[in-house]
Each structure stands twice: as structure tokens, then as C-alpha cells.
Design a protein around this nucleic acid. Structure first.
Lengths: 173, 173
DNA sequence: GTCTATACCCGGATAGAC
DNA sequence: GTCTATCCGGGTATAGAC
């Protein structure tokens, strides 16, 4: 899985890719500078020749995630149902990255410019541009997604039906 | 702030109360056995005479949180708008505890029995008992809440208006 | 650009004296 | 039920040799 097309050097990109694999495989606890370095056959201190610190590494991960996510939206037909499927599908396929992307304030200066907007635009489009309704829709989608990722729906819950019920009411039939 | 009425000994309750204060004040990173002990004037190893391990301490915090939360719901008039205010208000008043309560699977064996149901019942009631719609409403409320706590709405966003827009569509006018 | 060595933090938990 | 001493693990990051 290639990382984002930014101004990273090839070696830095290799580090970010390794970090991403590690994050997906083991979650945030596995994402240490030592383990990332180990994965590409170097020692942790060498990473600092390519990236200033761990925050920069995480920002690169978040940027790459937004680019992928926007891409997933752009490959749909743009209908609310398709966007909802893409949203949930991306998060279920990359749960730890999705958490990293949503569980803290965005470090916008370090993101690839425009990528947040690319990811948000389809949601705004689905509700015709009303910003309050777009935020409500996003909150619903994020809530469904993160509660599912966090194992908070009971075993017998019909998550598809809950998605459908919410989408029908927020978007209208 | 007193902790829950469980089978905790008085000393254990003191520990849990200290942990809660520490969590609220400093977030999860501040919640170490050493710091909790320090707050009540003992050393960390002494905690293990009262609670088996850190997981038990966290479960006690979550139980107490659910009890408070259910109580906040029960003090409303039960209308959807009042429940929404209580939900958001509780989370904004206790952000770190709210996160602890929602960001991982519930350790139900260690919770005070029935407290999860007490907290969930008002939400189910607000939608007339339809479980799919109740989950959609919960997802919306949690999504609004956690995105606000995580600083993910832009500075100019009208969060009240987004709540109102979502509630109107999910509950109906 | 890599390494070793290291400085400096932090954490959970246990053993055994009192 | 408290303590001290300790064991174990972890982490980010820097200095300086090569």
C-alpha cells in the first residue's frame, strides 16, 4: 500500500508505509519508532534523519488516509447510499487509521493541502450543501462507524438496518 | 464527587474517587497507579491491597459514569430535546470519562448490574422502542458529541443547529 | 545515512519487611 | 494495610563515531 504523493523523500515514504502497515496490523500501541525502524531493517534513531519526530510521522499517516478516503468516495456514483457504504467500508478496512484520523484535532498545517476538503465535499453534496445538515449526517456516519469499531452494538444488532433507518430520515427517502 | 454504590470497601471507593478526579483533570495519560496513590497519600503498591489491578479501577470508573449518566437522563422530562441536552451536557462536563465509557468494548461482567440498561432506556423510549432507530439516534448523538470533544467541527460551526437538524429528522417534528 | 550508546522519561505489578 | 526496593517492560529523542 503506497503512501501519499507528498514532498516526502523515497526513504521517508518507505518509513511511512511501514508505519501504516504496523498501525493496521497492531494498532496504535504497536506504532513505535523502534518497531517502525525494525520493519525496514534500520534502527530507530535513523528515522530522525528522514522525519523530524513522531508527530510528523502520524501527520503523514493521516494525510495518506484522507487521500485514500477521498478516493474511495470519488469512485462511488455519489448517491447517499453509495457514500455511506464507502464511508463504512473504508473504516472497517482500516480501523486503526480511521481512529487516528478522527480521534483528535486535525493538525491541518501538516496535512497535504486540500485533502480534508476532498473528503468532506461528497458529504456536503449529499445534503445539498446545508452545512448544519451535513454535520448531522457526518455525525451519524461517524457515530455508527466508531460504535461498530468499538464493539458497542450488541451481538444481535442489525447494523445495516440502523444505517438504513438513519440515512432514510436524515437524507429523506 | 462520590463514586458508585457498589460492593467497594470505603478505601477502594476513596481510590476510585481519586482516580476519577485525576482522569477528569488530566486525561487518560494522567491516570497511573502511582498518581492515583499519590493523590490520597499512599504509594502505588498499596492500591493492590484494595483493587486487583488497573482494569478493575477503570471498570469502577465506567460503572460510576454510567450511574451518573443514567441519573442525568432520569432528571429530565424525557422529551427528546431534553435527553439530547442531557447527553451532550454530561459528555462536555466529563469528557475523559465519556471517552473511557465509549471508546472500547464494555467489560459487562465488571459493571454494576443494570446500569447500562438504565442509561440506554431513555434513548429507546425517545423513538418508541424501534431498536434500529434507537441505534441510529444513539449513533447521531455519540457522533455529534465525540466530534465536538475531539475538536473536529470547524471554529465557526453552529453545533446547536447541527444537533437540531439531526434530531428533527431522526425523531420527526 | 547508518550505527551504538545513552539520557531521560514513563508505566504495571510483585516480594517481603513491618 | 502500608511501606521500600525492585523487576520487568516500554517510549522519544540526542550525541557522536563511522
Amino acid at each position: 500500500m503506497a503512501s501519499s504523493a507528498t514532498d516526502l523523500t523515497p526513504r521517508a515514504r518507505e518509513i511511512v508505509d511501514a508505519a501504516r502497515e504496523l498501525l493496521e496490523a497492531e494498532g496504535p500501541e504497536g506504532l513505535s519508532m523502534r518497531r517502525v525502524a525494525e520493519r525496514i531493517g534500520i534502527r530507530a534513531p535513523s528515522i530522525y534523519k528522514h522525519l523530524p519526530d513522531k508527530q510528523a510521522l502520524e501527520a503523514a499517516l493521516v494525510s495518506a488516509g484522507f487521500e485514500d478516503w477521498a478516493g474511495a468516495f470519488e469512485r462511488t456514483d455519489g448517491s447517499p447510499a453509495a457514500l455511506a457504504r464507502a464511508y463504512r467500508g473504508y473504516a472497517l478496512a482500516h480501523p486503526h487509521l480511521y481512529r487516528l484520523m478522527t480521534e483528535r484535532p486535525l493538525d491541518r498545517e501538516r496535512l497535504v493541502p486540500g485533502v480534508e476538503e476532498r473528503a468532506a465535499a461528497p458529504i456536503a453534496g449529499a445534503v445539498g450543501g446545508d452545512p448544519d445538515l451535513a454535520r448531522a449526517l457526518w455525525a451519524f456516519a461517524h457515530g455508527m462507524t466508531i460504535l461498530e469499531l468499538n464493539g458497542r452494538f450488541p451481538a444481535g444488532a442489525d447494523v445495516d438496518a440502523a444505517w438504513a433507518a438513519g440515512m432514510a430520515r436524515i437524507i429523506g427517502e
